[in-house]
Amino acid sequence: MKGAGDGGERPMLETGLISMHGERHFTAGEVVRDVIMGVSDGLTVPFALAAGLSGARAPSSLVLTAGLAEVAAGAISMGLGGYLAAKSEADHYERELEREQAEITTVPDIEAAEIGEIMAQYGLEPHEYGPVVKGLQRRPEAWLDFMMRFELGLEKPEPRRALQSAMTIALAYILGGLVPLLPYMLMPAAQDAMLTSVGVTLAALLFFGYVKGRFTGTRPVLSALQTTLIGAMASAAAYGIAKAVQGWTI
Score class of each variant (00 low, 15 high):
7 G>C: 05
64 L>P: 00
152 L>F: 07
201 T>C: 09
46 P>T: 05
24 R>I: 06
140 P>C: 01
129 Y>K: 05
234 A>R: 08
185 M>L: 10
143 W>R: 00
217 G>V: 02
131 P>H: 05
75 A>F: 10
239 Y>W: 14
220 P>V: 04
151 E>H: 12
112 A>K: 14
135 G>Y: 06
158 E>W: 10
40 S>I: 04
200 V>D: 08
55 G>D: 03
137 Q>C: 01
152 L>M: 12
113 A>H: 12
250 I>P: 03
185 M>D: 04
99 R>G: 00
23 E>R: 13
228 T>Q: 09
21 H>K: 11
111 E>Y: 09
147 M>Q: 12
125 E>V: 01
213 G>W: 14
118 I>A: 03
18 I>Q: 15
40 S>H: 10
124 L>Y: 10
171 L>M: 11
159 P>V: 02
4 A>Q: 10
114 E>D: 11
227 T>C: 12
116 G>F: 00
86 A>L: 08
185 M>C: 10
1 M>C: 09
35 V>F: 15
174 I>V: 15
231 G>K: 11
154 L>S: 04
64 L>F: 03
100 E>P: 00
156 K>N: 06
107 V>R: 15
41 D>I: 09
37 M>S: 12
204 A>P: 06
123 G>Y: 03
27 T>M: 07
238 A>F: 09
85 A>I: 07
88 S>C: 08
242 A>I: 00
197 S>I: 03
163 L>E: 08
136 L>H: 01
140 P>N: 02
46 P>E: 08
139 R>K: 12
40 S>F: 05
173 Y>E: 09
15 T>Y: 12
106 T>R: 13
121 Q>I: 02
209 G>L: 04
205 L>P: 06
31 V>W: 13
229 L>T: 14
247 G>H: 14
208 F>A: 07
221 V>T: 11
201 T>D: 10
42 G>F: 08
75 A>E: 09
229 L>A: 15
165 S>F: 10
148 M>N: 03
207 F>W: 11
19 S>L: 07
49 L>P: 02
77 S>I: 06
112 A>G: 02
103 E>M: 04
227 T>V: 07
146 F>M: 03
11 P>M: 04
6 D>F: 05
4 A>F: 13
227 T>A: 14
155 E>Q: 12
227 T>P: 04
248 W>I: 07
4 A>D: 14
194 M>R: 07
123 G>N: 02
43 L>C: 07
178 L>C: 07
122 Y>C: 02
86 A>C: 09
184 Y>L: 03
35 V>I: 15
138 R>Q: 08
177 G>P: 01
226 Q>I: 06
187 M>I: 11
71 V>K: 09
94 E>G: 00
146 F>I: 01
234 A>M: 06
186 L>W: 08
192 D>V: 00
237 A>F: 13
